[in-house]
Amino acid sequence: MQGVVKVNSALNMRSGPGSNYGVIGTLRNNDKVEIIKEVDGWYEIRFNGKVGSASKSYITIVN
């Protein structure tokens, strides 16, 4: 499943599904990500070869 980031500035990509996990990357508006699965309001995603988590509130699913 594919998604597109929708933010005003930037979205942190984290090492796990929650804001208490470390930041491993930064996503910008309109970045395209691969959604692997949903976990507690977060998506596990793949972006630029990295796997991490980002809040699903800022990612829109595209077909």
Results as ranks from 00 to 15, higher is better:
1 M>K: 12
1 M>W: 12
1 M>C: 15
1 M>Q: 11
1 M>T: 11
1 M>Y: 10
1 M>H: 10
1 M>E: 07
1 M>N: 08
1 M>L: 13
3 G>A: 06
3 G>F: 05
3 G>C: 10
3 G>S: 02
3 G>R: 00
3 G>Y: 04
3 G>L: 05
4 V>K: 06
4 V>D: 02
4 V>I: 13
4 V>N: 03
4 V>H: 05
5 V>K: 01
5 V>Q: 01
5 V>C: 09
5 V>M: 03
5 V>N: 01
5 V>F: 02
6 K>V: 12
6 K>R: 13
7 V>T: 14
7 V>D: 04
7 V>W: 05
7 V>Q: 03
8 N>A: 13
8 N>Q: 12
8 N>R: 13
8 N>V: 12
9 S>C: 15
9 S>I: 12
9 S>E: 12
9 S>N: 12
9 S>K: 13
9 S>M: 10
9 S>Y: 13
10 A>D: 11
10 A>L: 14
10 A>G: 11
11 L>Y: 07
11 L>V: 15
11 L>G: 06
11 L>E: 07
11 L>K: 09
11 L>C: 15
11 L>F: 06
12 N>D: 15
12 N>S: 14
12 N>E: 15
12 N>K: 14
12 N>R: 12
12 N>V: 15
12 N>L: 15
13 M>P: 02
13 M>L: 14
13 M>F: 11
13 M>I: 15
13 M>E: 04
13 M>A: 03
13 M>W: 08
13 M>C: 12
14 R>Q: 08
14 R>E: 05
14 R>H: 15
14 R>F: 15
14 R>D: 05
15 S>R: 08
15 S>L: 08
15 S>M: 07
15 S>G: 08
15 S>C: 12
15 S>N: 09
15 S>Y: 06
16 G>T: 03
16 G>A: 02
16 G>D: 02
16 G>N: 03
16 G>K: 02
17 P>T: 04
17 P>R: 03
17 P>H: 05
17 P>S: 05
17 P>M: 05
18 G>Y: 02
18 G>F: 02
18 G>E: 03
18 G>V: 00
19 S>I: 14
19 S>D: 14
19 S>Y: 15
19 S>M: 15
19 S>H: 14
19 S>N: 14
19 S>L: 15
20 N>T: 11
20 N>W: 13
20 N>I: 10
21 Y>N: 04
21 Y>F: 12
21 Y>P: 02
21 Y>V: 02
21 Y>W: 08
21 Y>A: 04
21 Y>G: 06
21 Y>K: 03
22 G>S: 14
22 G>H: 13
22 G>N: 13
23 V>N: 03
24 I>R: 00
24 I>F: 01
24 I>H: 01
24 I>L: 06
24 I>G: 01
25 G>M: 11
25 G>H: 09
25 G>P: 01
26 T>S: 09
26 T>Q: 12
26 T>Y: 10
26 T>H: 10
26 T>P: 04
26 T>W: 09
27 L>T: 01
27 L>M: 05
28 R>G: 07
28 R>H: 14
28 R>P: 02
28 R>D: 06
28 R>I: 09
29 N>P: 10
29 N>H: 09
29 N>S: 07
29 N>A: 09
29 N>G: 06
30 N>E: 09
30 N>R: 08
30 N>M: 09
30 N>P: 03
31 D>L: 04
31 D>F: 06
31 D>A: 08
32 K>C: 13
32 K>W: 11
32 K>G: 05
32 K>L: 14
32 K>H: 11
33 V>A: 01
33 V>Y: 03
33 V>W: 02
33 V>I: 07
33 V>S: 01
34 E>P: 00
34 E>R: 05
34 E>D: 11
34 E>G: 04
34 E>F: 11
34 E>A: 07
35 I>K: 00
35 I>E: 00
35 I>C: 05
35 I>D: 00
35 I>A: 00
35 I>N: 00
36 I>S: 03
36 I>D: 02
36 I>Y: 06
37 K>H: 09
37 K>N: 12
37 K>D: 11
37 K>F: 09
37 K>S: 13
37 K>W: 07
37 K>Q: 10
37 K>A: 13
38 E>V: 08
38 E>D: 07
38 E>T: 05
38 E>L: 07
38 E>F: 05
39 V>E: 09
39 V>F: 10
39 V>A: 07
39 V>C: 10
40 D>R: 09
40 D>V: 06
40 D>A: 09
40 D>K: 09
40 D>H: 10
40 D>C: 10
40 D>M: 09
41 G>E: 09
41 G>W: 05
42 W>E: 00
42 W>I: 00
42 W>V: 01
42 W>R: 01
42 W>D: 01
42 W>C: 04
43 Y>D: 00
43 Y>E: 00
43 Y>L: 06
43 Y>K: 00
43 Y>G: 00
43 Y>T: 00
43 Y>I: 03
44 E>H: 08
44 E>M: 15
44 E>R: 05
44 E>G: 02
44 E>Q: 11
45 I>E: 00
45 I>W: 00
45 I>Y: 00
45 I>T: 00
46 R>W: 09
46 R>G: 03
46 R>M: 12
46 R>N: 09
46 R>H: 08
47 F>T: 03
47 F>S: 04
47 F>K: 03
47 F>E: 01
47 F>M: 05
48 N>S: 07
48 N>I: 05
49 G>K: 04
49 G>I: 05
49 G>H: 06
49 G>W: 03
49 G>L: 05
50 K>L: 15
50 K>P: 02
50 K>F: 10
51 V>Y: 10
51 V>D: 05
51 V>L: 11
52 G>R: 00
52 G>A: 06
52 G>Y: 04
53 S>I: 10
53 S>C: 15
54 A>C: 13
54 A>H: 03
54 A>L: 08
54 A>D: 02
54 A>N: 02
55 S>V: 13
55 S>A: 12
55 S>W: 14
55 S>N: 14
55 S>Q: 15
56 K>F: 05
56 K>L: 06
56 K>A: 12
56 K>E: 04
56 K>S: 11
56 K>N: 05
57 S>N: 13
57 S>H: 14
57 S>K: 15
57 S>A: 14
58 Y>W: 09
58 Y>D: 10
58 Y>L: 06
59 I>A: 00
59 I>T: 00
59 I>F: 05
59 I>K: 00
59 I>Q: 00
59 I>R: 00
60 T>E: 13
60 T>A: 11
60 T>L: 12
60 T>V: 14
60 T>H: 14
60 T>Y: 13
61 I>D: 02
61 I>T: 07
61 I>V: 12
61 I>M: 09
61 I>R: 06
62 V>A: 09
63 N>F: 11
63 N>H: 13
63 N>G: 13
63 N>L: 11
63 N>V: 12
63 N>I: 11
